[in-house]
Simulated scan of single mutants.
Amino acid sequence: MRAISGLWRWRRNPLRRGTDLAEAWMGLVALLLILVVGPVIGSVIGGVAQDALQRSVQEQRESRQLVTATVIRKLDRSLLDTDPETSTGRDLRSRVLADWTAPDGTTHEGKVMADLQTPHRGDHFSMWTDLHGRTAARPLDSATATTHAVLAGIGAALLVAGVIEGSRRFAVWRMVRRRYARWDQAWDRAGPDWGRTGTGS
């Protein structure tokens, strides 16, 4: 709606100031930059992020393996888990002492989280390790990496749009301040004679 109401600045009008036309041109240039530069930068940033994240996905897939571990015994709940209200996904997982064989053939034993609700000695569960058998986080999957890359691209485009619009508003604010300053100067010059025209004084 503001764009439509601002069309008067383009028409020839004796009341139109030079700053009105400059403001209209700034608005048009800002709109074109937001519509062209924003998406281009967003797609470039998204593409770079996609390449980096997909490389990370590949590296994680190569450096982490899913192994089968065996429960030795269930451990007490962690002392850090004292709040019973924070039992979102933890009810499906238990802290256990387990042993497993690493991809390089070495055997390991340690305290891990098992995706078992009621673990018993001898139960098997899957867990991620690095190539030397140390526990590792689940590798990033390709779909999640793509989602993060898309969000990075959208964020970059929105940031560019915000910077462009902020710069336009700042420039218009400066122009308005200068206009008001010129009005004040003109008023100061005309002020002492205001209302005395033709009185002969």
Rank of each mutant, 00 (worst) to 15 (best):
I4L: 13
I4Y: 13
L7D: 09
W8N: 07
R9D: 02
W10F: 15
R11F: 11
R12K: 10
R12Q: 06
N13Q: 07
N13R: 08
N13H: 14
P14R: 11
L21F: 12
A22V: 14
E23V: 10
G27A: 13
V29W: 09
L35S: 10
V36D: 02
V37W: 01
G38W: 01
I41A: 07
I41Y: 04
G42D: 04
V48G: 00
V48L: 04
Q50M: 06
Q50G: 00
L53T: 01
Q58C: 01
Q58E: 14
Q58T: 12
E59A: 15
E59L: 07
E59G: 05
E59N: 12
Q60V: 09
Q60R: 13
E62F: 12
E62L: 13
R64P: 02
Q65F: 13
Q65M: 10
L66N: 14
V71I: 09
R73F: 04
K74F: 02
D76G: 10
L79H: 03
L79Q: 06
L80F: 12
D81S: 15
D81W: 04
D81G: 11
D83R: 08
P84H: 09
S87Y: 03
T88M: 02
R90F: 01
D91V: 02
L92F: 03
S94Y: 00
V96Y: 00
L97M: 02
L97T: 00
D99S: 09
D99N: 09
W100R: 01
W100I: 01
A102P: 07
P103Q: 11
D104Y: 11
D104N: 15
H108K: 10
V112E: 00
L116W: 02
L116N: 02
Q117F: 08
T118A: 14
P119S: 04
P119I: 01
H120P: 00
G122N: 06
D123P: 03
D123A: 08
H124K: 13
F125P: 00
S126D: 11
M127D: 00
W128M: 08
W128I: 07
D130P: 11
D130N: 15
H132V: 05
R134P: 00
T135M: 03
T135P: 05
A136P: 06
A137C: 04
R138A: 15
P139W: 03
P139C: 03
T144M: 07
A145S: 12
T146E: 08
A149T: 05
V150N: 06
L151P: 03
A152D: 12
G153P: 03
I154D: 03
I154H: 08
G155K: 02
A157L: 06
L158V: 07
V160D: 07
A161M: 14
A161E: 05
V163P: 01
V163K: 05
I164F: 12
I164D: 01
G166P: 06
S167I: 11
S167V: 12
R169I: 03
R169P: 04
W173Q: 15
W173T: 10
R174V: 10
M175Q: 14
M175N: 10
M175S: 14
R177E: 04
R178Y: 09
R179D: 14
A181F: 10
R182A: 12
A186G: 09
A190L: 12
A190P: 01
G191C: 07
G191D: 10
P192V: 04
D193R: 14
W194H: 13
G195L: 09
R196F: 04
T197W: 02
G200K: 13
